[in-house]
Design a protein around this nucleic acid. Structure first.
Lengths: 242, 242
DNA sequence: CCGCTTCTCGTCAATCCGACGATAAAGACG
DNA sequence: CGTCTTTATCGTCGGATTGACGAGAAGCGG
């Protein structure tokens, strides 16, 4: 590979994190304020370069998650989203960043990381608003992350990862409604989720919430895949073309 | 980021290609024989380092595809599969490789690339056989690629990417059967694929194959997604747990 | 007790899927 | 030219799942 004088190009490798949650009836993403150039003062995804040449990608993602957001990596679902490496996406030098996607329950472990001076939840709609200036290509990454989340809750039980350890069917439904941006029929939804084996495990407890009949409490079940998938009204473009 | 003497670790960035096809009633993958150390003489996925610091990841994947396999990148579906960067996966130095997944029709453009002295199709079952020695962690990558392909043809029209420009319903069914490793009912399959809008476009032509009624010929339609998905008998593990 | 809210259970028609019978249209063979 | 074999295509039927929606259950506030 290193014949006739050619050398392996020098490229920096980073990991970024797209951590999503559902808060205040909105899909929100964890952003930090950049403290250094480039894009100093702008909002960006948590992330950074590998700490050393021996650090694995997954370990780097978990370390950055803990350092920059104070969240507990072992408590979250973390998966690779996509790798971004367009030349020029970082003005300093060529950077390839492996982006990870994480789902966090609403009131997550209080944010209190070292580097997390400005870590905060931002509604995705706000983050993607043309008025919001995001560092690097993080707008594109956020769009991809939301897209992946929308698809993933369709055929996996990951929507429950947005809920606290114990939750009601209505809370889970709200997650779907917020992530998909469409209203679901409470009765059909209830029938569906309680009918899929291994999705929800009843705890026996009930809620005493504001006005209305108390709801049964559930915990996440052992199933990871939804069979059949959670039905979703077809996209506006009914042809399936894109 | 470069405060107090810390330096960005030196990591080499590569792209690898998992090119799948269906040949001789088997799912096959394109492998090349390594001409240099390490793993010289062993089978490996086509791929290599970025040519220079300004080459995009997608461009590198397309270049390697053309160089090492002689296939036409513009004619294939190419998507990122996963990024592998376990320390030690390359004994020379730390290498992070972005792996791409491609679907090729059966009799692809004749393999005749520059570096393609030993490019060949190998049945996935053979490649993953314990007797076959694969370079790096390419066995793991192949498993991931097959897994992705199996899932992807379930809810997209990509199975048709394994077929020549004009094909019959039976040929398409064979693709599903080979990739999934299970037999499908020809009648139900025919009803399904001809019923999904935008999947198949009849050309009007018919085949004159060996014995049996001639089949209608179809071309790939404009749809990319299958709604509803192609039904698949649930995995042996019926709980959906994993 | 009454209205209001939210949860939960049921009903019914439409659609989709799995199993499978039946017909159509070719080649092979006597 | 008939029959057999093979493959393609159409149809039927029951069961499962979904979408629309009615109705009771069980809390709260007045």
């Amino acid at each position: 590979m290193t014949d006739n004088g050619w050398k392996i190009p020098e490229i920096a490798v980073a990991v970024d994190l797209a951590v999503l949650t559902v808060r205040d009836d909105a899909l929100q993403i964890m952003l930090v304020e950049r403290g250094v150039e480039p894009f100093r003062g702008m909002q960006a995804l948590p992330g950074g370069f590998l700490s050393d040449v021996a650090e694995s990608l997954d370990a780097a993602a978990e370390r950055e998650l803990a350092e920059e957001t104070g969240l507990d990596p072992s408590a979250l679902h973390l998966e690779q989203l996509h790798t971004y490496g367009t030349p020029g996406r970082d003005p300093r030098q060529r950077v390839v960043t492996i982006c990870y996607l994480a789902f966090a329950p609403d009131p997550p472990a209080p944010v209190a990381g070292g580097d997390a001076r400005a870590a905060s939840w931002v509604p995705v709609a706000t983050a993607l608003h043309p008025g919001t200036r995001l560092a690097f290509d993080h707008g594109e990454i956020i769009r991809d992350a939301v897209e992946r989340a929308r698809n993933k809750i369709e055929y996996t039980t990951l929507a429950a990862a947005f809920c606290p350890p114990e939750f009601t069917v209505a809370e889970l439904r709200r997650v779907y409604e917020v992530v998909w941006g469409e209203l679901l029929d409470p009765r059909n939804f209830h029938r569906k989720v309680t009918g899929v084996a291994g999705f929800l495990v009843p705890t026996g407890g009930r809620t005493t919430r504001q006005g209305g009949r108390p709801a049964a409490l559930y915990r996440r079940g052992p199933a990871h895949l939804l069979h059949p998938a959670m039905p979703r009204s077809p996209a506006p473009d009914a042809t399936g073309t894109s």
